[in-house]
């Protein structure tokens, strides 16, 4: 099968081909209006949150942001007025449950099924790259999009936070103080962890994408699955299966703001994402390399 087809091609050629395949895929993905619209929505969330917090803190008498209901709203909300860097964490906490995975689900769901429905998949396979390689390029593209989408949220939040609120040394949620530089480093680390948290959805979306030839169906299924899993994760009676649901430990990225960092849930989160990638990635491979491509 595919291995036999590429057997004669030199290693160097193959490697550069992979890179070229990935670069091409990534550019194509970024050129889509759909992708740009998703990124614009993601960039707008921190702006909205920032303005809302700013308006409320200016309007509220006494300057303090309503202390009584500290638990309401996304995490870190109470600290945003005092340090703009916290807007990065608030924005990531606000977008991680739905906006970010939805965007990733759209891109991942579109990866194979979109090509199939546009009738371009067979042309991609004419090139001597092999199906495994194409699938890998598609997944790497989706992973790159996970990182890009997270960074868009983080950078937008940092810009809005710097414009609207003071910056400076910050207090971790454990009550210790860290410098602004260390705070920035932690923000970057948090963005990476958030991007890694999306790998499971990306693999799930890619698998769904190999099942159908309709791009819309694959996107809708992935986003629908995401919502269903999120709901299941909220039902107390189902607590026995919740630790195995991919979004269960998503908000553990906040543990990076503890001093010392609390790694338990972070490790569980990353381990769970790796498991989902292994299961759905190999399932996507099994499906894609064995299926008849007719469009």
């Amino acid at each position: 099968m595919s291995r036999a087809d590429i057997a004669g091609v030199g290693v160097r050629v193959r490697r550069s081909w992979s890179l070229g395949l990935f670069a091409g895929e990534f550019t194509v993905t970024l050129r889509r209006w759909r992708t740009l619209a998703l990124l614009a929505v993601l960039a707008a969330v921190p702006v909205l949150v920032g303005i809302a917090v700013k308006v409320e803190s200016d309007g509220g008498s006494g300057g303090g942001s309503g202390g009584g209901d500290g638990g309401a709203g996304p995490a870190f909300m109470a600290q945003v007025t005092n340090n703009g860097l916290f807007l990065v964490f608030t924005a990531l906490a606000a977008t991680l449950p739905f906006f970010l995975p939805m965007a990733v689900g759209v891109v991942a769901g579109d990866a194979i099924a979109g090509e199939a429905s546009a009738g371009t998949l067979r042309y991609l396979l004419v090139a001597p790259a092999g199906r495994t390689r194409l699938l890998l390029a598609k997944y790497v593209t989706t992973v790159a999009f996970c990182l890009l989408a997270t960074l868009v949220v983080a950078v937008s939040a940092l810009a809005v936070g710097a414009l609207l609120f003071p910056l400076g040394d910050l207090t971790t949620i454990s009550g210790t103080r860290i410098t602004f530089g260390e705070g920035l480093a932690r923000a970057l680390l948090i963005a990476l962890v958030v991007a890694a948290s999306l790998l499971g959805v990306a693999a799930l979306g890619l698998f769904v994408s190999t099942l159908t030839t309709s791009g819309i169906a694959a996107m809708a299924t992935t986003v629908g699955l995401l919502t269903t899993v999120q709901i299941v994760d909220q039902i107390p009676q189902l607590h026995a299966i919740q630790p195995y649901l991919f979004p269960h430990y998503w908000l553990s990225f906040a543990d990076l703001m503890r001093e010392p960092v609390y790694w338990d849930d972070l490790q569980k989160n990353l381990g769970l994402q790796a498991l989902y990638v292994a299961v759905f990635g190999s399932a996507a491979w099994a499906r894609f390399t064995a299926k008849d491509i007719t469009t």
């Binding site: 202390g67 209901d69 500290g70 995490a75 109470a78 600290q79 207090t171 009550g175």
Partner: peptide, 10 residues
């Protein structure tokens, strides 16, 4: 003796 609640910043 300090008590710090990071959720409400109190």
């Amino acid at each position: 003796v300090w008590g710090y609640d990071s959720a409400s910043n109190e």
